[in-house]
């Protein structure tokens, strides 16, 4: 079984988000980058599945050499080899196009991505890839198991879940619950140094959207504290704002 896991390199969850160049660029000064947490659980599940099925796991990133440390971490977690498509991503369409061009003739049975990256928060690449490769996609996957050449996936739906059977190949965006985060062990870290990291040049493709400006969300006015002995006051306040209907 061949699995491809697409990963992004994102600012650490505690990063203070600021911008430069008249609020048009994210300020990367002093920012610590990490493997996107959702991609990390996709990778953890891929490694578990590959172990059971004697498979391989390739990790892929679209971006510059700054992400090589993150790719090495993915190798330490258990990926067999890494690929970096050497391009500055513009939008999800650009990224999905690059991945699709690479994956097209490689015979992957399953392509995993995180459900979203914690920087630009799109839930786009998995479904775009599915469309570009003309295979099924599940954007928010809570569980993946394998039965022969079929994936059994749980998809989150409003107020419940759906259990799907999807023949290989397919794309899945993984959410929490698909696997536990894995901490690389010493042997993994040592072997990661010698595993292959292939750099591939991008294909020519135009993005269809771009971010032209950022702004900070409106800050809240300071909190109005209510004394613990006057709980009714809170209810009155909420009612006056139309929250409590009879």
């Amino acid at each position: 079984m061949k699995i491809l896991v697409c990963i992004s390199n994102v600012p650490d969850t505690t990063t203070k988000i600021t911008f430069t160049d008249n609020n048009t660029q994210f300020n990367t000064q002093g920012v610590q980058y990490i493997l996107n947490p959702y991609d990390e659980i996709a990778l953890a599940r891929a490694v578990e599945l590959a172990e059971n099925e004697q498979g391989t796991v390739t990790v892929l990133h679209v971006g510059d050499a700054n992400a090589d440390a993150t790719l090495r971490k993915a190798l330490a977690i258990g990926a067999s080899d890494a690929v970096r498509i050497n391009a500055q991503p513009t939008d999800a369409y650009f990224v999905a196009s690059q991945i699709a061009a690479y994956a097209q003739d490689k015979g992957f049975d399953m392509i995993l991505t995180g459900r979203e990256s914690i920087d630009y928060n799109g839930t786009k690449v998995a479904a775009m890839l599915g469309e570009m490769l003309d295979i099924p996609s599940v954007s928010i996957t809570k569980k993946i198991t394998i039965e022969g050449n079929t994936g059994i996936l749980e998809r989150e739906i409003e107020g419940g879940k759906e259990v799907l059977a999807i023949p290989f190949p397919f794309v899945a965006g993984t959410a929490e619950g698909v696997a536990d985060w894995k901490i690389p062990n010493m042997r993994g870290i040592m072997s990661a140094r010698t595993k292959p990291l292939l750099v591939v040049e991008p294909i020519e493709v135009q993005g269809l959207s771009k971010i032209v400006k950022f702004e900070s969300p409106a800050s809240r006015t300071s909190v109005q504290l209510i004394d613990a002995s006057e709980v009714g006051k809170l209810i009155d306040l909420l009612q006056s704002q139309g929250f409590l209907k009879n």
Binding site: Y120, L208, F214
Partner: peptide, 15 residues
């Protein structure tokens, strides 16, 4: 919303 709602992006669609 981007950066987990720590910022808002103005996205221009060019298609």
């Amino acid at each position: 919303n981007v950066f987990s709602s720590k910022a808002i992006a103005f996205v221009e669609i060019t298609s």
